[in-house]
């Protein structure tokens, strides 16, 4: 089984995100970047499949030079090869355009399965898996918490989380795209020999020219959806402390949960 994992490098969820003065994006200085947590599950699943069936695991990621760290992290975990889509022109690509670039690279590769996270914890679009599958004319399953590959490597059965504690069991022929959800597995911690080996691996770099696309097809120019007017949400109100008699206090909590938090 040859598995491709598409992953993204995102700011650590704890990072303070600041908006640039123009409101067109975020300030990238002082950000601690990590591998998108959902993509970690994808990498781990790919490695488990490799351990069971043999084959290779190839990591593909798009972004500036810093993205190499995330690719190396996956290589350190045990992936075999890395592909880095690096070109200033790619910057600002929306999900559709990202999927288009990825599909362009992937369609000439040999693969049985594409794994990725169910969403990237930066722009939270949760789209690339679906767009990519569509562009490659493949079936996909998202929010996957369980994956079983048949012994012949031809089909897969995925467990998909939906609402209200209901899970769907979906069977699909391979190749297919699977988008990982937390719970799929417990990602491994890279061993030090793995880290050292990963440092020496050559990561294949692909830019606009080698990809064979034009600047107008990619990046912000090629995107169908534009993002603007970055703004802070209304400040979360400081916690309210309710004192008083229990019946009144409870009424107040319920009111807050219902009216303000919209949780019931």
């Amino acid at each position: 089984m040859d598995v491709i994992v598409c992953l993204k490098q995102v700011p650590d969820t704890e990072t303070k995100i600041k908006i640039n003065p123009e409101g067109t994006g975020i300030v990238t200085e002082g950000i601690k970047y990590v591998m998108n947590p959902y993509d970690e599950y994808a990498v781990e699943e790919a490695l488990k499949i490799k351990e069971k069936f043999g084959g290779t695991v190839t990591i593909i990621s798009m972004g500036p030079a810093r993205v190499v760290d995330a690719i190396r992290n996956a290589l350190a975990m045990g992936a075999d090869e890395g592909v880095h889509l690096n070109d200033p022109a790619f910057e600002g690509s929306d999900s559709f355009t990202t999927a288009k670039i990825l599909s362009k690279v992937i369609k000439d590769m040999k693969y049985d399965l594409i794994l990725t996270g169910k969403q990237a914890m930066d722009f939270d679009c949760s789209q690339v898996f679906g767009c990519l599958a569509e562009l490659l004319e493949l079936p996909y399953v998202s929010v996957v918490t369980g994956l079983e590959i048949s012994a012949d490597g031809k089909t897969a059965i995925a467990k998909r989380e939906t609402e209200g504690g209901v899970e769907e069991i979906i069977q699909m022929p391979l190749p297919a795209v699977v988008a990982a959800q937390k719970g799929l597995n417990e990602p491994r911690y890279a061993s030090l020999p793995g880290i050292m080996k990963a440092k020496k691996k050559v990561i294949k770099e692909i830019n606009l020219t080698t990809l064979g696309m034009t600047a107008s097809e990619v990046g912000e120019a090629g995107s169908k959806m534009k993002t603007k007017n970055f703004q802070l949400p209304p400040e979360r109100k400081a916690g309210k402390k309710i004192e008083g008699e229990p019946p009144e206090a409870v009424k107040e909590i319920v009111r807050m949960l219902h009216d303000e938090a919209k949780l019931i």
């Binding site: 650590d12 911690y189 061993s191 030090l192 020999p193």
Partner: peptide, 25 residues
């Protein structure tokens, strides 16, 4: 370092250290 054998809470500790240089998230 060789076998990555430790409990989940130790892994969380290492991960937190790597990203935020402190034991907590």
């Amino acid at each position: 370092l060789m076998e990555s054998k430790f409990s989940p809470e130790v892994k969380l500790f290492f991960k937190n250290m790597e990203t935020n240089s402190n034991p907590w998230t």
